[in-house]
């Protein structure tokens, strides 16, 4: 039957993307030396959980939905054209979610059928909600990854109404998990920070301010970085720093003294001193910081 594959359909159709929805996986490590950051899910822990809940490999591609607002329809038909069923999972920032108007559970596998419509409201806390579909999203990869990198322009474009994303075949059995409860993102974010590499570029008083202040995430924040507002950090030396390699989680301080916390789409090099770097294990939490949220930093190794 040569027309079999014409009838088989596995895709997600975007009806409305909300403020920003992108395809993300765990990114493309290994290209920094050519100027491309790893990118990938800003809250990687939530994406991997969503994938596990629907029996996908942890690094399968899903959607990163910023500020909710996504509406999408699943099309799942067998090669003979008959409707098929599948699963999806929603993790990360909790938000009201419905499938065909009925409430859908978060952090749990949700059974779906051909034609079902998913709708997400605004998150009640946090910023980014993750959607995994059983089989994973399979748009063409760039440099080995399907992640959308908003700084370098690598990977699929941010979603627009009418976009369709292919869904792959399930790679393994469904797990025997009904629900994976998680704590919601907090009202105040506390992140552990390693000082350096350029903490010696700042006044002692500014290092105390850095750990003592209650910072605020400004609205000028995105996947590249979170611009913070708080006490202006003062440099103890003048002159320019030659550009140097940057890591995700780096807190780079431009001349105005207001740090920028680099997230997943950060530039690979930067020319301002980095006062400290957020602990790797706290980066998924940093990926959930919404504009206006208060943030505190504490030195790695000190009690909460």
């Amino acid at each position: 039957m040569t027309h079999q594959n014409l009838l088989a359909v596995r895709e997600l159709e975007v009806i409305a993307p909300g403020p920003l929805a992108t395809v993300q996986d765990l990114g493309r490590p290994g290209w920094s030396h050519l100027g491309v950051s790893r990118s990938g899910a800003a809250d990687a822990a939530s994406l991997t959980l969503a994938n596990r809940l629907v029996g996908n490999p942890e690094d399968a591609a899903g959607l990163e939905v910023t500020f909710g607002g996504l509406r999408a329809r699943l099309r799942l038909r067998r090669p003979d054209g008959t409707p098929a069923t599948g699963y999806l999972a929603l993790t990360g920032a909790p938000c009201p979610a419905t499938v065909n108007g009925r409430p859908a559970a978060l952090d749990a596998p949700v059974p779906v059928s051909d034609g079902d419509e998913l709708a997400l409201g605004m998150p009640t806390s946090g910023l980014r909600t993750y959607l995994a579909v059983r089989g994973g999203l399979t748009p063409p990869p760039s440099l080995g990854s399907r992640a959308t990198d908003l700084l370098s322009g690598t990977g699929p474009a941010p979603l627009h109404a009418g976009a369709t994303l292919p869904v792959g075949e399930p790679a393994g059995p469904m797990p025997g998990v009904d629900h994976a409860p998680r704590s919601a993102p907090p009202a105040e974010f506390v992140l552990r920070v390693w000082l350096g590499p350029r903490d010696d570029w700042f006044e002692e008083a500014s290092l105390r301010d850095f750990f003592g202040a209650r910072w605020e995430a400004t609205s000028k924040s995105n996947r590249v970085g979170i611009r913070l507002s708080g006490p202006a950090l003062q440099r103890s030396r003048t002159g320019e720093l030659p550009a140097e390699g940057m890591v995700r989680g780096a807190l780079q301080v431009p001349p105005n003294g207001q740090p920028v916390l680099f997230l997943v789409d950060h530039p690979v090099t930067g020319g301002y001193p980095v006062i400290g770097v957020v602990h790797e294990d706290d980066l998924p939490l940093a990926g959930q910081i919404p504009p206006g949220a208060p943030i505190r930093f504490r030195p790695v190794g000190t009690p909460v």
Binding site: P29, S32, H33, P242, A243, E244, G245, V268, E280
Partner: peptide
């Protein structure tokens, strides 16, 4: 060692902890 990112006077060496 994962990645080596050279710049004018520094070499950033990222690693698997």
């Amino acid at each position: 060692v994962r990645e080596l990112i050279a710049a004018a006077r520094t070499l950033l060496v990222t690693y698997d902890p």
